[in-house]
Design a protein around this nucleic acid. Structure first.
Length: 107
DNA sequence: CAGTTGACAGTCC
DNA sequence: GGGACTGCCAACT
């Protein structure tokens, strides 16, 4: 693969390749890029993530970015992303996703 | 050029 | 089960 894009560009491509109803952890995206900087991925999402389905990228805890839990929850429900039963009902700001079922890996 | 920050992850208590 | 510390990498000041 030709490296025609920067780290940020590669992150956006991987995130854009995530199908609806599925999610990937920052660490998984970083691993696809050949890097271990999960934080670097999160940084790119904070800067240019507005151009990609950022809600399909979640933390290893199964939680969306801090401060965007409600925004992401709306997308998960709209796409049918597997959430933990009653999680969002108990704490809409502290819910968790079923990574075991929602986690997806590119071919 | 060097230090700090940050949409994180993994391990230990 | 939850909280705290450390390690990692890229962008910003």
């Amino acid at each position: 693969m030709s490296a025609s894009l920067d780290f940020g560009g590669a992150v956006l491509l991987v995130v854009a390749d995530i199908p609806p109803g599925r999610v990937m952890t920052y660490g998984d995206v970083a691993a696809e890029l050949g890097s271990r900087g999960a934080r670097a991925v999160g940084r790119v999402m904070a800067t240019e993530g507005s151009s990609v389905p950022w809600w399909r990228v979640v933390r290893a805890d199964g939680r969306p970015p801090e401060g965007h839990e409600i925004e992401a929850l709306a997308h998960y429900r709209a796409e049918g992303t597997p959430l933990r039963a009653g999680a969002a009902e108990h704490d809409p700001h502290s819910y968790r996703l079923n990574l075991q079922a929602a986690r997806w890996a590119p071919s």
